[in-house]
Design a protein around this nucleic acid. Sequence first.
DNA 1: TATAAAATTGTAATAAATACAAAATAACAA
DNA 2: TTGTTATTTTGTATTTATTACAATTTTATA
Lengths: 135, 135
Amino acid sequence: MKTKELLEKKGLRPTIQRIKVYEYLLKHREHPDVEKIYKVLKEEIPTISKTTIYNTLKELADRGLIIEIPTEYKLCFDGYTEPHSHFICEECNKIYDIDADFEFDKKQKINGHIIKNFCVMFKGICFNCQRKEKS
Amino acid sequence: MKTKELLEKKGLRPTIQRIKVYEYLLKHREHPDVEKIYKVLKEEIPTISKTTIYNTLKELADRGLIIEIPTEYKLCFDGYTEPHSHFICEECNKIYDIDADFEFDKKQKINGHIIKNFCVMFKGICFNCQRKEKS
DNA sequence: TATAAAATTGTAATAAATACAAAATAACAA
DNA sequence: TTGTTATTTTGTATTTATTACAATTTTATA
């Protein structure tokens, strides 16, 4: 389905700003933060405002079209919403996708709390930073 | 073991500020943020500085004495370091401990990345907010 | 007690996020 | 079309969170 239709299905007007933000996250799997998205989109849409980026990301996340990844440093975003985990490198702070499948039935309650979703974050030294340290 | 000795064992001088920050986190299982800890400790130690809270929390976390819990809203802290998970309520933003045991061998690598630790965050509507919504 | 190292404090600077009113855009009825 | 209304975007101002850093204070120990 096209980005435009996905937005409409969630009750969001498919404005050029929303489409571009969403498409950026679908095409780039780097888990960007607000600043990164803003800088890139400003090339294409010079009038775009950072407030719009914030607003759009919140709307997309509220509707489950994207995932918010809170880190110690900043809030990052992911357009890939299939169940997966993340790894963050404590050297370079880069975030990697991890295809670890944790079994969990979202319909169950835990301690009386309704579970809507869950996320797993691994932390350590990434493949690349290990190489750098050796040399 | 006493807080003082735990700090010394990790190579940290057991200053009154560090002891109090650490003890606060061990005694209160509410997952406070910097602001909360600062406000409470300022009662006891009126000269304490927020920078010291930041510094101390970073040192404690680096040495594994406490856990950092990044959320969408702010960075929270936990003095309880036994393996456990967290649940955050999307209504009241309160963080609860969850005794879910996810099996994972930390010594293994994933995709070539060295895993030092991992955390699981559940999200949804907490027990208390469910009651409020019914009435 | 003197000296050096470590830690704390307070202020300033930076960065991240939010609030909000004005302007622009889009939907749609006449 | 055109006019009206609702929605969205933009830009600026605030607020909040975090970091940088020099001066002061504290601590260890020679």
